[in-house]
Each structure stands twice: as C-alpha cells, then as structure tokens.
C-alpha cells in the first residue's frame, strides 16, 4: 500500500538499434508503466534508429553523413534482429512467429508506451554526431536531451537499464 503512494521510476538507455533488443526495452517499459512506474527511455547511438520515422528520407549535410544516413536509415520497420537476420529472412520469420502468438509489433508497443505516458527522449549529442535532425523522429518522441538529463532521471530511479 505504501509503495502504491510514492511514484517509482524506471530509466532506460536504449543504445542498440536491434529489433529484438528494442522489443525487450518496450516490453519492460510498458509493463513498468502498467505497474504505475514513471518511465523514461533515453535513445542514443544506434538506438535512435528505433524512434526514427519510417517514411521519407533523412536530410543530412556532407558526404559522410549522407552515406551514414543512407546505410543507417533506421525506422521501426527497418530494424533487424541481432542474430539470424539473414538478409531479412530471419527477421521476417521472427515477426511472423510473434504475430502467431499475438505478440504486439514494435510499432504497437511504441504506441502503447506513448499512451501510457512513457517518455521517449533522443540524445542530442548522437543526433549531432550522426546528423539526425529533430524532424527525423516519430511524433511519440517527447524531447531531446543530454547525458545530464538521463543521469538526473536515473538518480531518482529504482531501476536503470542499459539496452
């Protein structure tokens, strides 16, 4: 009863852009939100791919960033498994298997998380390094921030995860 009164917090760093890791992160996030926890997900490096828009092309300046953002387009529909991606065949099969057991897709999980008030934060530093502009992100992304914001949140959290 006492626990129910005070707000518990969970903060996550999503560093990886792998589909399986992203699924795990969002499953934990939505469950934590269901348990009344305040959840913040901080996306950095390849993790930014999880929250990029699926549509359109990314605008970037300079040949290196253009090359990077072509090879590393991102978006929930383009995420690959960390194992057995097999040029897309493995990932396609995993998605099919997940559908068969009524598991939500990564897009459904992102929508659920958003509806439950999970905060999705993109790391400004990696956005700068990788030439990812703010309008590259899907609408569920709540803000852009740096490591201090993450540490501030993490400091108040009972659980912190790096995925």
């Amino acid at each position: 009863m006492v626990q129910a009164q005070c707000k518990e917090k969970l903060t996550m760093v999503v560093f990886s852009g792998d589909l399986d890791r992203a699924l795990a992160a969002f499953i934990i996030a939505t469950t934590a939100a269901s348990m009344g926890m305040e959840v913040t997900m901080f996306f950095t490096f390849w993790g930014l791919n999880v929250i990029k828009k699926n549509e359109g092309s990314l605008k970037s300046q300079g040949w290196m960033l253009k090359m990077l953002n072509t090879m590393n387009r991102g978006g929930s529909k383009r995420l690959a498994l960390s194992k057995f991606h097999m040029m897309g065949m493995g990932t396609w099969m995993m998605k099919k298997l997940m559908k068969e057991v009524n598991m939500p897709t990564i897009d459904e999980l992102i929508t659920m998380a958003n509806e439950m008030g999970v905060k999705l934060v993109a790391c400004t530093t990696t956005c700068g390094v990788m030439g990812v502009s703010e309008d590259s992100f899907r609408s569920e992304v709540t803000s852009l921030a740096g490591a201090a914001y993450f540490l501030g949140e993490a400091n108040e959290s009972k659980a912190t995860l790096f995925i």
Partner: peptide, 14 residues
C-alpha cells in the same frame, strides 16, 4: 487468453 507478457498486465492495469 492467447496473449503473452506484457499484454495481460497492461490490460489488467487499464
């Protein structure tokens, strides 16, 4: 029935 974690918990919370 027919759903795995986290659906039962998420639905219960709602």
């Amino acid at each position: 029935t027919g759903t795995y974690c986290p659906i039962p918990i998420v639905k219960t919370a709602a």
